[in-house]
Amino acid sequence: MSLTLLQGTLEQGLIYSLVALGLFLSFRILNIADLTVDGGFTLGCATGAVATLAGHPFLGLWLAVGAGTLAGLVTALLQTKLKVQPILAGIITMTALYSINLMIMGNRANLPLLKCDTIYTLLAPYLPAGYDKLIAIGCIVAVVVILLYVFLKSGTGLAVRATGDNPDLVRSSSINPSFTITIGLCLANAMVALSGAMLAQYQLFSDITNGTGMVVIGLASLIMGEAIIGRGSMQRCLLGTLIGSIIYRLIIAVAITSSLAASNLKLISAVIVAISISWPAIKEKIEFFKLKQTSKKQMP
């Protein structure tokens, strides 16, 4: 694998790590499988791209964050106020977002951003040539990670974390769990949409299918990170999520370079997720089989 390809993989890994961080917040901390992510990611792509076309790439990032927050809010309200099951609430929002995303992109499935100023071209003159994108992306991700870390250690953050761990405790601490779920889902989807806006400007187009399978990809990154770094302190978890996301992109890069068609990408993703999630069960089966074999040999 060439150095350029490796650098590109690192850049993409960092962009997508925001999705994995969003899922860390909703799936791991709140213990909710939030399917809003698929629509929310495209929402970020679309808002980011439209603003970039209008000549405001930085504003595009902020707009994406705002739009993602709103998407999270809708899912959260469906769940907490209208008592829709968490998974269904996400699916409803995701479905609605498909139409909204098309609307944002002016009823076009694909929006190219060729010859537009993006955050990367605008920042390039101030950064060392060759590494400008990597540094720009790295800085944004670093800021998000630090903010997320500070939030999770704050009072509200503690309550959000306790919500996934023991909702009874949150209630008895005189905090409404509906409130903490709402905060968590808004933040998670804001990060996901930010990632989408950064990707649209990075790949110079926004496509209605950009978000398809994003939940699965984010989960795969998250779980691989946990497998490597482990689930200890909050710092470890956040670091693991970043590393998992980069490794996921590496695997995809290797898969593509080894003469696999790009259209097989989602199949590979799904297989990776299925294996990484079911890994503990597979390991158990193998160990059981081994144990049975040795015990058979010991029989007189």
């Binding site: 503690l158 309550a159 974390r161 023991n166 405790l169 949150v170």
Partner: peptide
Amino acid sequence: GTAPNMTIEENLAL
């Protein structure tokens, strides 16, 4: 009455 995945001090702080 307690959150198992959080530390003692985090539970108390909550």
